[in-house]
Design a protein around this nucleic acid. Sequence first.
DNA 1: GATGAATGAGGGTTCATTCAT
DNA 2: AATGAATGAACCCTCATTCAT
Lengths: 215, 215, 215, 215
Amino acid sequence: MTSPASPGIGHAPAPPIPAPGCKESQILNGAAEVFARDGYEGASMSRIAMQASVSKGTLYNYFASKADLFAAYVHRDCARWIALMFEDLDPATPPEEALHQVGRRMFAMLLSEPALVMYRMVVAEAQKFPELAQSFYREGPARAVGHLSRFIRRAAAGGLLSVADPDFAAEQFFALIQTQLSMRRRLHLIGMPSEAEIQHVVDGAVRLFMKSYGA
Amino acid sequence: MTSPASPGIGHAPAPPIPAPGCKESQILNGAAEVFARDGYEGASMSRIAMQASVSKGTLYNYFASKADLFAAYVHRDCARWIALMFEDLDPATPPEEALHQVGRRMFAMLLSEPALVMYRMVVAEAQKFPELAQSFYREGPARAVGHLSRFIRRAAAGGLLSVADPDFAAEQFFALIQTQLSMRRRLHLIGMPSEAEIQHVVDGAVRLFMKSYGA
Amino acid sequence: MTSPASPGIGHAPAPPIPAPGCKESQILNGAAEVFARDGYEGASMSRIAMQASVSKGTLYNYFASKADLFAAYVHRDCARWIALMFEDLDPATPPEEALHQVGRRMFAMLLSEPALVMYRMVVAEAQKFPELAQSFYREGPARAVGHLSRFIRRAAAGGLLSVADPDFAAEQFFALIQTQLSMRRRLHLIGMPSEAEIQHVVDGAVRLFMKSYGA
Amino acid sequence: MTSPASPGIGHAPAPPIPAPGCKESQILNGAAEVFARDGYEGASMSRIAMQASVSKGTLYNYFASKADLFAAYVHRDCARWIALMFEDLDPATPPEEALHQVGRRMFAMLLSEPALVMYRMVVAEAQKFPELAQSFYREGPARAVGHLSRFIRRAAAGGLLSVADPDFAAEQFFALIQTQLSMRRRLHLIGMPSEAEIQHVVDGAVRLFMKSYGA
DNA sequence: GATGAATGAGGGTTCATTCAT
DNA sequence: AATGAATGAACCCTCATTCAT
């Protein structure tokens, strides 16, 4: 119903992301800004209402509570940039080149401002919103690893890589991308790294990976 | 700065960690409990006062504000368990064995409950308390990498490893430890991993590392 | 249904009770449920609208305000069960038997759930809605006493009772029905009394009454 | 301390009524005024704070919630005027005179402004505060009936009255006091009755009572 | 130094009411 | 005639902070 276009696939998104122009979307935009700036606890419904240019009452016409609004915001924004992450890799790409490509994309995505904000909030509130942490993990990191793992398995089957445990290997590659540079960025100690810095980290990761897992 | 070697001189550490028995310490203990449970915004001075068995007035005799108290708590507790992390590695240890040893220790420490709590809080409040994030990074991750880097450099000098950039190599090893298992633990999705799971991750990290950097 | 049948006579009731099927009636039914459950202040127009299956806007098309709606509800429901109270007593009935009969009916009616609810609400809001209390009194207790008083007067005229002040005597009988049992019921301390308990109270009332006022 | 006079009895009051001058008392005075005027739901903590000349925060330093404050108010004010009700009747008083005396006192008390207010509130909120209704009944009406019942029993034992069931007889007398005058007063339809009106009702009650139960 | 009563701004939430459709 | 989205004031309650004792 929400996407009759692509026949045969139809895995409908659970929370139907609101149309960009509508009031609900307007509220979520305001919420995104305030939550990102102040965190969950620090954000106030008053400020969100103000930022979204609606009355406080209207907030509650769309979302039953602050927690609900927060969940909706996380879901929408997760879905947004997760979608950008993985257009499937062409299996024909030589592994080394594919790793470079996906490595750079991952890196850039991980350290992008919206992803950072999301990561910070989900980590911070994981205790209070366990189901949010769960769905964040499932929709984000888990899917990324899954995609990479499938690529590795195919490459191994084709004799291009020599990997016994593709899942674990994918996790390792994913981990190698997140050096201290990521940590410092997450702690707001640095801004977005330059292209050269990214390249350096990714090169290092690919080199280590291929040395072990190259055919 | 941390080097207490120079004898006879008592250059006091910047934030003088309070004597364990005193009232200030008593307050910080209460604060630790409450901050860990409720987060910065969620914690209330009343609850902290109650937990520490002092009056609210006394809190303000020792700490000018909630933010101040929070900073003091982070500093003290960071210092506490960072200290446990790195008794210096014996340079005589064979690299592979040393990596296994330090890998296991890092892993266990990183995923321990107090470290998780601290990580979560610092990440969550990095925006509001930038200087806190800075000192957390300096006293924690940066020192860990520094230690490992020095060990690698020595081993390379001795011909036991073949590493061009010891700092970067150390970061890579550190990164390899933090697979999805860490991510899931940070998101409260799993409890403390078993000894076998730890061993598996560390083995994999050492294998990858040695394949590239082994002499 | 209230008797539009009688041809030729148009003594319209002051607040024209709405026809049972119409939208106004539908709203009042919803209001009755919610007011009874939540009281005047506790009731919300949203819940009433929901209960009545109409939109909030429609509520205001029929009633200018919450207070108006409340008044309409009280009027209609008072009228409803007051009507059931007194089909006129047959003057030929021997007084003692008539008193037993009317006593039991009064008692049962007074302690019935809808009457209790109404009593509670009118008492509670007597200050805020004085005209409501007035009309409640006039349509309820005053009419009950009036009926009984007329019966007593006729009986006295016929030599069956010896009563100087029929109004006062009727009030006394009415009062004797309302022992502590009524009080406890009004305070929600007990449920509906059993038939035996009712009989006991009514017997006692009739006995006392007849001892003084019997011919 | 509250009643050192009667030795050997000492039934201490459960909720220690606060000293008249203290802040708690000051708050309760403000609460009494506002609750009496606006009812439980209608009263706002802000108005109470204002009326009591304290800040809203202070209210919550003394009472955990609005419900708590309401309960404390009911308890204190019940206790206050219940105490005035029954200094024990002298058993030597002739029954008819005693009934006149207690009848007038009851009547006046029942229809006094504070008792009315209390009655209205307890009835109104009996559903939401059942334990309050219970303790109101126990401390008020039940005790009144108990006192009267004991007097009647003694008189019957002394041959001055002829009563088989003193409890029921006491209830009947109590009921006879509460004619429509009481009802009208409870509905705020009239002010305090005149001395003559009171006398009339009480005379009638005593007459009916003595006609049946006189020796 | 230690206390805890007092404060008042601000928190999330509900509500009666309005009005464009 | 009927709707329901939008409003903003008011609700109860919590909070960090102050200050007289």
